[in-house]
Protein backbone atom coordinates (compact mmCIF):
# COMPACT_ATOMS: atom_id res chain seq x y z
CA UNK A 1 0.00 0.00 0.00
CA UNK A 2 1.19 3.46 -0.87
CA UNK A 3 -0.29 6.34 1.06
CA UNK A 4 0.64 9.89 0.14
CA UNK A 5 -0.78 13.36 0.48
CA UNK A 6 -0.72 15.15 -2.86
CA UNK A 7 -1.62 18.55 -4.24
CA UNK A 8 -3.28 18.62 -7.68
CA UNK A 9 -3.41 21.76 -9.79
CA UNK A 10 -5.89 21.88 -12.66
CA UNK A 11 -6.16 24.19 -15.62
CA UNK A 12 -9.52 25.88 -16.21
CA UNK A 13 -10.45 23.36 -18.94
CA UNK A 14 -9.76 20.33 -16.73
CA UNK A 15 -12.03 21.55 -13.96
CA UNK A 16 -15.01 20.46 -16.09
CA UNK A 17 -13.92 16.81 -16.20
CA UNK A 18 -14.72 14.02 -13.69
CA UNK A 19 -11.07 13.27 -12.97
CA UNK A 20 -11.40 11.96 -9.43
CA UNK A 21 -14.16 9.59 -10.51
CA UNK A 22 -11.85 8.03 -13.10
CA UNK A 23 -8.99 7.89 -10.64
CA UNK A 24 -11.09 5.82 -8.25
CA UNK A 25 -12.87 3.68 -10.83
CA UNK A 26 -10.04 2.87 -13.23
CA UNK A 27 -7.11 2.70 -10.81
CA UNK A 28 -8.79 1.38 -7.64
CA UNK A 29 -7.34 4.15 -5.50
CA UNK A 30 -8.69 5.43 -2.21
CA UNK A 31 -9.19 9.16 -2.13
CA UNK A 32 -9.62 11.34 0.96
CA UNK A 33 -10.13 14.94 -0.13
CA UNK A 34 -8.73 17.35 2.46
CA UNK A 35 -9.26 20.64 0.71
CA UNK A 36 -10.61 21.61 -2.70
CA UNK A 37 -10.83 24.89 -4.54
CA UNK A 38 -12.76 24.15 -7.70
CA UNK A 39 -14.67 26.84 -9.58
CA UNK A 40 -16.28 26.69 -13.04
CA UNK A 41 -13.97 27.92 -15.83
CA UNK A 42 -11.14 28.77 -13.45
CA UNK A 43 -7.93 27.11 -12.34
CA UNK A 44 -8.45 24.76 -9.44
CA UNK A 45 -6.47 22.98 -6.76
CA UNK A 46 -7.14 19.97 -4.63
CA UNK A 47 -5.34 18.47 -1.67
CA UNK A 48 -5.97 14.81 -0.98
CA UNK A 49 -4.67 11.71 0.62
CA UNK A 50 -4.24 9.04 -2.07
CA UNK A 51 -3.70 5.39 -1.25
CA UNK A 52 -3.65 2.07 -3.12
CA UNK A 53 -1.40 -0.66 -4.56
CA UNK A 54 1.98 0.73 -5.72
CA UNK A 55 1.46 -0.04 -9.43
CA UNK A 56 -2.07 1.39 -9.36
CA UNK A 57 -0.76 4.44 -7.55
CA UNK A 58 1.90 5.04 -10.20
CA UNK A 59 -0.53 4.49 -13.06
CA UNK A 60 -3.01 6.85 -11.43
CA UNK A 61 -0.41 9.57 -11.10
CA UNK A 62 0.64 9.01 -14.74
CA UNK A 63 -3.01 9.28 -15.77
CA UNK A 64 -3.32 12.63 -13.96
CA UNK A 65 -0.08 13.97 -15.41
CA UNK A 66 -1.13 12.76 -18.87
CA UNK A 67 -4.21 14.99 -18.59
CA UNK A 68 -2.03 17.96 -17.72
CA UNK A 69 -2.73 17.98 -13.98
CA UNK A 70 0.28 19.14 -11.98
CA UNK A 71 0.81 16.63 -9.15
CA UNK A 72 3.04 17.53 -6.25
CA UNK A 73 3.63 15.82 -2.96
CA UNK A 74 2.16 17.72 -0.03
CA UNK A 75 4.94 18.61 2.35
CA UNK A 76 5.61 21.40 4.88
CA UNK A 77 2.34 23.00 3.99
CA UNK A 78 1.36 24.21 7.43
CA UNK A 79 4.19 26.13 9.01
CA UNK A 80 4.62 27.47 12.49
CA UNK A 81 6.22 30.85 13.12
CA UNK A 82 8.53 29.81 15.95
CA UNK A 83 9.07 33.43 17.02
CA UNK A 84 5.37 34.07 17.36
CA UNK A 85 4.26 30.79 18.93
CA UNK A 86 4.14 31.16 22.72
CA UNK A 87 3.32 27.47 23.30
CA UNK A 88 0.06 28.41 24.99
CA UNK A 89 -1.52 25.18 23.78
CA UNK A 90 -4.85 26.60 22.60
CA UNK A 91 -4.42 25.00 19.16
CA UNK A 92 -4.33 21.49 20.59
CA UNK A 93 -8.09 21.63 21.05
CA UNK A 94 -8.87 22.27 17.37
CA UNK A 95 -6.37 19.96 15.65
CA UNK A 96 -8.48 16.97 14.57
CA UNK A 97 -5.60 14.50 14.23
CA UNK A 98 -3.33 15.35 17.14
CA UNK A 99 -0.63 16.84 14.90
CA UNK A 100 -0.49 19.66 17.43
CA UNK A 101 -0.02 18.22 20.90
CA UNK A 102 1.32 19.08 24.34
CA UNK A 103 4.68 17.68 25.36
CA UNK A 104 4.51 16.85 29.06
CA UNK A 105 5.77 17.90 31.50
CA UNK A 106 7.52 20.70 29.55
CA UNK A 107 4.06 21.89 28.33
CA UNK A 108 5.57 22.91 25.00
CA UNK A 109 3.43 22.42 21.92
CA UNK A 110 4.76 19.82 19.51
CA UNK A 111 3.90 19.91 15.80
CA UNK A 112 4.02 16.68 13.79
CA UNK A 113 3.99 17.64 10.14
CA UNK A 114 3.57 14.00 9.05
CA UNK A 115 0.21 13.80 10.77
CA UNK A 116 -0.96 17.24 9.60
CA UNK A 117 -3.97 17.16 7.24
CA UNK A 118 -3.56 20.83 6.29
CA UNK A 119 -7.18 21.44 7.28
CA UNK A 120 -6.24 24.98 8.35
CA UNK A 121 -8.23 24.98 11.59
CA UNK A 122 -5.17 25.92 13.65
CA UNK A 123 -4.34 28.71 11.21
CA UNK A 124 -7.59 30.53 11.83
CA UNK A 125 -7.82 29.57 15.52
CA UNK A 126 -4.31 30.34 16.83
CA UNK A 127 -4.76 33.35 19.16
CA UNK A 128 -1.33 34.75 18.26
CA UNK A 129 -1.62 33.89 14.54
CA UNK A 130 1.56 31.85 14.56
CA UNK A 131 0.35 29.21 12.07
CA UNK A 132 0.25 29.67 8.32
CA UNK A 133 -0.46 27.58 5.23
CA UNK A 134 2.16 27.42 2.52
CA UNK A 135 0.55 26.00 -0.62
CA UNK A 136 2.05 22.95 -2.35
CA UNK A 137 5.32 24.49 -3.45
Amino acid sequence: MVNQKVVLKFSAALVEQPIIYRLIKNYDLMVNIIKAEINPRREGSLIMELSGQPDNFQSGISFLEGLGVVVEPLSQTVVRDEERCSHCGACTVVCPVGALYMNRPSMEVGFDNEKCLVCGLCVSYCPLKAMDVKWGD
Binding site: H87, C88, G89, V93, M102, S106, M107
Partner: peptide, 9 residues
Amino acid sequence: TNPMSSYPA
Protein backbone atom coordinates in the same frame (compact mmCIF):
# COMPACT_ATOMS: atom_id res chain seq x y z
CA THR B 1 -7.77 19.54 28.73
CA ASN B 2 -6.12 22.44 26.94
CA PRO B 3 -4.40 25.54 28.28
CA MET B 4 -4.93 29.12 27.06
CA SER B 5 -1.99 30.61 28.94
CA SER B 6 1.57 29.57 28.12
CA TYR B 7 3.38 27.67 30.85
CA PRO B 8 6.73 27.67 28.97
CA ALA B 9 6.49 31.47 28.60
